[in-house]
Simulated assay, not measured.
Amino acid sequence: MPDVSELVKKGKALLVEGNFEDALAYFEQALLLNQNDSDIWNQKGAALRSLGRYDEALECFNKSLEMDPTDRHSS
């Protein structure tokens, strides 16, 4: 089973490639292993935003900011 960092790395690569559905799946897998990482929530939000799922994306960005209010990369 891949670790969280491998899942996030693969998800980010897929996001850059424009493969948003698969990227989202990797970020969701990573969150199953670590719910407390603001970067993963932010990445999931980016994938959702790219898919036009704005309400869900906003929830992820808000969760990321709750965990790390100083994060300048959210949204």
Rank of each mutant, 00 (worst) to 15 (best):
M1H: 08
M1F: 12
D3Q: 10
V4T: 11
V4P: 00
V4Q: 06
S5E: 14
S5H: 10
E6L: 15
L7Y: 09
L7A: 11
V8P: 02
V8Q: 08
V8E: 04
V8R: 02
K9W: 05
K9A: 12
K10D: 13
K12L: 09
K12Y: 10
K12F: 09
K12N: 14
A13F: 08
L14I: 15
L14T: 13
L14S: 10
L14Q: 14
L15W: 08
E17R: 14
E17W: 07
G18K: 06
N19E: 13
N19Y: 06
N19D: 14
N19S: 12
F20A: 01
E21H: 13
A23G: 05
L24P: 01
L24Q: 00
A25Y: 01
A25T: 06
Y26W: 04
Y26V: 04
F27G: 01
F27P: 01
E28P: 02
A30W: 01
A30V: 03
L31Y: 02
L31I: 07
L32D: 10
N34A: 10
N34P: 05
Q35P: 10
Q35T: 10
N36H: 08
D37P: 06
D37G: 04
D39N: 11
D39Q: 11
D39S: 12
I40A: 03
W41Y: 02
W41D: 00
W41F: 06
W41S: 05
N42S: 13
N42A: 11
N42C: 15
N42W: 04
Q43H: 08
Q43W: 02
K44A: 01
K44S: 01
G45N: 06
G45Q: 02
G45L: 03
A47F: 03
A47M: 03
A47V: 00
L48H: 03
L48P: 00
L48N: 01
L48C: 07
L51D: 00
G52K: 01
G52S: 05
R53C: 06
R53P: 04
Y54R: 10
D55F: 07
D55I: 06
D55V: 08
E56H: 03
E56K: 00
A57N: 06
A57L: 09
A57P: 07
L58F: 08
L58K: 11
L58T: 08
L58R: 08
L58Q: 10
L58G: 00
C60T: 01
F61S: 04
F61P: 00
N62G: 03
N62R: 14
N62H: 14
N62F: 09
N62P: 00
K63Q: 14
K63E: 10
L65D: 07
L65A: 10
L65E: 06
L65G: 03
E66M: 12
E66S: 12
E66D: 15
M67C: 08
P69Y: 13
P69S: 12
T70L: 14
T70D: 15
D71A: 14
D71T: 00
R72E: 15
R72I: 15
H73M: 13
S74R: 11
S74N: 12
S75W: 15
